[in-house]
Amino acid sequence: MVDVLAFGEHAGGKIAPITADLIAAARGVGGRVAVVLMGGDLTGLEAQTAPLGVDKVYTVQHPLLAGESVDMLVSALEQVCRRVQPRVLLLGKTAIGRDVGPCVAFRLGVGAAQDSVAVEAGGQTGRIVATRPVYGGTAMAKVTFGSSNPQVVIMRPGAVERGSVPGAGEGVAEEAEAIEVELDESIRKVRHVETVRKESERMRLDGASVVVSGGRGLRGPEPFAMLEELAGLLGGAVGASRAACDAGWVDHSYQIGLTGATIRPDLYVTVGISGASQHMAGCSGAKRIVAINKDADANIFKEASFGVVGDWSKVLPSFMEAVRDLVRS
């Protein structure tokens, strides 16, 4: 019997961080927790799940599961769910999980709560209650499930404090079971042609302790050169709002927000960003936000710790000059 089944992700022979998030969330729900690992070759992965604290590890190894085809993963996970019959299925809102989760739910005729930040077993019924940001994060919804299982919840990466859940991270005596699935080439409807990586000299946004971002208020691409310089002074990375990316001022790899990068810096400096919910969804983990914006009523001032209401073209040069002096001293 398994109560909560977590869809474990892995890359390059290592368990992905989202897997630990999911197991922590599963521990919070309670009951027997299992993780399922799928792939073409799972050698060495099973052992890595022991410190995460699961009661059981299911492994699904099949040559057609190499290469992360969503079609193959959906079919395999559907078969695992029919066999294991978990009450709850947890996936991460990753490039894979956000598609696999809903597809499996549709196939099983059950509901899925997408992009959830908290999950708990609710009240008397014990049905799952998931909390999820909606309207770009302007509102929060608590949703629950009808009577069918599994209750599928797709968790936002980083939403669960791993240390805060009792039992999470404790080595639990675990059992392992290999599950055979039936897959064939006819299941693959979408064919992979090639993956193109954009090589970038830029500092990565995720993991940066300082991020400097520009938005629509900059009115053009030129000011981003100043933001690059400021980021250089502070040892940080440069980001942008979706509006600035869509306008073509910077590449979309700069985009921070609900559908762009998620950042958790100690310091987040925004210039000409109004702070729409869709943007804030990508930076709500920032410890301190600094806002430079000419509109005193802009939402960003409700989220910022420090702000200047003024014209960035006058504020930014003197701010940078002072920063230059300070970092030298």
Binding site: G111, A112, A139, T144
Partner: peptide, 13 residues
Amino acid sequence: RRIRIMDLFLPVR
């Protein structure tokens, strides 16, 4: 509905 809304609220920020 397979997913039911129990509560919708505007977080205070």
